[in-house]
């Protein structure tokens, strides 16, 4: 059987697939053990949004996702978005910054350790 071995673990994809199929089969079987009289069409199966009309929330746009995460990371994003200016001058500026840092670090390294 195909597997990947590291120094700490083993990964056997086919075994994973086999167990996943088995779990799905079991969950499918369990679903038949539930109540037969449950009516999906009735109100109790519909979404409940704190008493609001669910149809108003029918379309959730991509930018609505994870708003809480973005709210809490506002500072981080104001910094990173600020760096992404779209100006080619800034692109080159960052190249110069990186090249300068590398040069300083390696120069110090050469003078100290070599």
């Amino acid at each position: 059987m195909s597997f990947v071995e590291t120094h700490h673990g083993l990964w056997v994809p086919l075994a994973f697939l086999l167990f996943t199929c088995l779990a799905m089969l079991l969950s499918y079987v369990f679903s038949f053990l539930g109540r037969k009289d449950f009516a999906y069409s009735k109100e109790k199966a519909k979404p409940f949004i704190s008493g609001h009309d669910p149809s108003a929330y029918e379309i959730i746009k991509a930018s609505d996702y994870f708003w809480g995460f973005f709210k809490s990371t506002e500072n981080y994003y104001s910094l990173t978005k600020g760096i992404h200016t779209g100006l080619v001058n800034d692109y080159i500026f960052w190249f110069i910054v990186v090249a300068s840092i590398l040069l300083i670090v390696f120069s110090i390294g050469v003078f100290i350790w070599v």
């Binding site: 990947v4 590291t6 120094h7 700490h8 673990g9 994809p13 086919l14 994973f16 697939l17 996943t20």
Partner: peptide
Amino acid sequence: PPTNGFASKFLIYESVF
């Protein structure tokens, strides 16, 4: 799992650790 991305990341996680 069980995609190819998992296989390579698994190697990276376990060795970089």
